[in-house]
Amino acid sequence: MTQATMTARERAPRAPLTRLLRAELRWIFRRPRTLVVLGMLALLPVVVGIALTLVDSPGPPGGGPNGAGGGESLLVSAGGNALVLPVAALGMALALLLPLAAAMAGADAVAGETAHGTLRGWLLTPVSRGRLLLVKAFGVAAVAVAAVVAMALTGIVTGLVINGGGTLFTLSGTTLSFPAAVGKVALAAGWVALQLWAVGAVALAISTWTEHPMLVVVSVLAGTILFSVLGALDALDWLHPFLLNDSWQAIGDVLRDPVPTGELTEGALRALCYIAIALSIAYARLTTKDG
């Protein structure tokens, strides 16, 4: 007993954390699947931008299916406006594609590594389980940021190429300078990344309970769809504030002038709550699960 407490007090040798994080990033961004998914997401704003120029006429307001998603109706304004395109594309992808990308990262992080037997490798070197979760959460967060940044960049470039540099204005009709416009897109991207961290944290938590990465992705997919359905049912409006995607349509608010911060703040806080719940469950499971 005394021996045990003494050895526990001595500092165990550890690999530097930055080295672990670097190794994790290298592993993530060497994986072909990650790169393919990121590439496709980055292409999305380009495709949307080209499609909008081909359609060219934004159409009468409310003429198309309205209110199907914040992103989609944002597209109405993305036609002649270089600022709207990246945000609209982010809003569109936030409905399903980006959460799937985050889920994939979360699935590979623990379930995938367990399936390959590689998680055991790190546990044996050893990496403590708390650090392991830290590294894994960092990796998932990095994928989310990479996806969002890639989309924002291609969105801005596509918008500028198609519409020209003078077309950066808000939904309220305020014309913005280029740095101000980039700031708005960065705000949108940061907010979307935070939402994706919440999705990724949930995926990570599920990931610690299974060794089938597909199961994680399917769960997150099913959850996203279920939450959307629940969110559409007015009879359940008491439940809506608990749904992670309740304020996802508020992404368009960054394009208003002045920015109404209410829903964006609420969404950000909600995401933080989800992160707290999911990561603590993931920690509990990871520290007790058999390696």
Binding site: P13, R19, L20, R22, A23, R26
Partner: peptide, 15 residues
């Protein structure tokens, strides 16, 4: 690359 990833976590190895 697999071994490099593993080695990154080895406490006894300097970078």
């Amino acid at each position: 690359e697999n071994l490099l990833r593993m080695a990154a976590a080895e406490p006894r190895l300097t970078t």
